[in-house]
Design a protein around this nucleic acid. Structure first.
Lengths: 339, 339
DNA sequence: CTGAAAGCGCTTACAG
DNA sequence: CTGAAAGCGCTTACAG
């Protein structure tokens, strides 16, 4: 591969001059510029980004560590992150933690070794020493979707409280009283918050959330299936299951179907995170939709702000309820606005 | 961030020695080794991968350019690619082309600039000069899923012919005679092959595939919707629509639903690519499943073989038909093996 | 076994 | 406007 030396030789100038025209430095003669450009063209020269990074100490690369790429919510998040980053002149390297703290650490380490300019993370757990150290050491960082309390890092996320209240109102209005939840890992903020929001909303109707109706999932389909099986085995099974993410909702559907039962007749179902297929499932699934694209873009902007020395603030956007038929027929759909 | 010099100073040895212990070079005294390791520990030193890459001319990174991350098939492919790569000591950087040749080129260029060790691509088109040049210039490369004819690069893909034959047998057995297809872009191999395989299979039953029943899609949902609308507007609409990927099948479902029609009663539907949600759609969708994980892993192995100087061969794996209810009820499911 | 030195491909003060 | 030179953080022959 041609190097800057080859270009300099071909153009009859020094490498310094080549570098200057490549970086649009003002003080280059028109003549030198044309000769260099011509040389670049004939040699098909492309600057070596590795060498440039070593010299300038910036990679123009963002690291994105997400908990699970196979989760459509995160896939969309990743996509919007890459789009916004590209618009701002950055590349992004994605690390898929698969909900495993060890894998998350592997990716954080690799990304740091590559000297990415900043890190976007949706933590799988309460934060490993590695991540905490990186944050403390001043690595530009922002949390998306999930975050770690007590760490001084901006957080970009959706607030589902209003939507969960709307969901409970909807369920209550349909006559449901025994409501259960498939929670995400307690080590994640979204794992906890969704349960709390649900419990709070139930409280407003004088309903409580017994332990038996709080299943511990891990945001993956299989756990949703297992927890739902457990619910179904109860002497008094719940009337509704609220899955804290779309994959666990998938698992819940698997469980219901395996027993030959029907949604919503035998068990109503609602999910956090809305995905396109929910329109076409049997029945269409009521879900809480996050402004995913917005979140991804806001997170990138916050991170790039930090990288480039600007403040970089936290952002919280509201989620909203999308009523469909998986909780029962609703003659006059109550679809309140979120507050 | 601590550099190798700091470690050397801390350990009281030269940077050469530090480098040697870091790289497990045999000729280092036990004493030097312990001192260096201790220094590494106290400084929290991590080698700068950028500097190392510049020096060794290898990044231990693979580039993966896929046509559309939001397509679950590619998401799964990406995941298996990353897994296998990690097992072999490589990282992977994903570039999402979104079915746009210009974006594909952007990513190929960026990846090449970063001096990735090898490139895995599922081309969106017939191949831009950039990609062709890279292949010719000897960049280790392998095509996954889609490929570009006439380029000397190993291809790892699924052969859907047998499964398409099985699908047509299934459809014919259900009494369907007017079969249509939503094709992918003609510029992609999978876009063409699936149509050809379908046409051939129809031929075996004396059926043909009129132009009116060949809709031109682009592997995205919206195009599936549009093409299906067109089919439905025909004086004599088809009885079955075969979508060449899962997203266009989604679009087809959107179209059918928008008209208040039902699958399979008003229009039967089958799709290339199987996804987990197809079990829970209304009705469950008959699909052709690719061994996606296998493909991703085989592709990585082929690429790493090339990178490390071994041959690196093409691999073709069979796809298989998964019969569900979207083409009509089938009393005795014919699920032939693929040949 | 160990260190001094060269060099990977760039960028950027410093002189001129 | 231009070039020689230093230096980014490593690795690796080459001597010793």
């Amino acid at each position: 591969m041609a190097s800057i030396k080859d270009v300099a030789a071909e153009a009859g100038v020094s490498v310094a001059t080549v570098s200057r025209v490549l970086n649009d430095h003002p003080s280059v003669s028109a003549d030198a510029r044309t000769r260099v450009l011509a040389a670049v063209e004939t040699l098909g020269y492309r600057p070596n980004a590795v060498a440039r990074s070593l010299r300038t100490d910036q990679t123009h690369t963002l690291g994105l560590v997400i908990s699970d790429v196979m989760n459509p919510y995160f896939t969309e998040l990743a996509r919007s992150v890459e789009e916004e980053a590209r618009a701002l002149g950055y590349s992004v390297i994605i690390g898929n933690a698969d909900e495993r703290p060890d894998l998350q650490d592997h990716h954080v380490r690799t990304l740091l070794d590559r000297r990415i300019d900043g890190l976007l993370v949706s933590p799988t757990d309460g934060g490993s020493p590695l991540m905490l150290d990186a944050a403390r050491a001043g690595t530009p960082m922002v949390f998306v979707d999930r975050w770690i309390p007590g760490v001084d890092v901006p957080v970009v996320r959706a607030d589902g409280r209003g939507a969960v209240r709307d969901l409970v109102a909807h369920l209550h209005g349909l006559g449901h009283r025994r409501l259960a939840i498939i929670a995400g890992p307690a080590a994640t903020t979204t794992g906890q918050e969704r349960v709390e929001a649900f419990r709070e909303a139930l409280g407003a109707y004088g309903l409580d959330l017994p332990d038996a109706y709080t299943g511990q999932g891990d945001f993956q389909a299989e756990s949703g299936r297992l927890v739902t099986e457990g619910f179904l085995d109860l002497a008094e099974p719940p009337e509704v299951v609220f899955a804290a993410d779309n994959l666990m909702a998938l698992g819940a559907l698997d469980a219901v179907r395996a027993r030959g039962l029907r949604v919503p007749d035998d068990l109503a179902l609602a999910a956090f995170d809305d995905i396109r297929w929910f329109v076409h499932t049997d029945p269409p699934i009521t879900a809480i939709a996050q402004p995913t694209g917005e979140l991804g873009r806001a997170a990138v902007r916050a991170l790039v702000d930090r990288i480039e020395g600007r403040p970089g603030e936290s952002v919280t956007l509201p989620a909203r309820l999308v009523v469909r038929r998986s909780c029962g027929e609703n003659p006059t759909p109550v679809q309140r606005s979120t507050t």
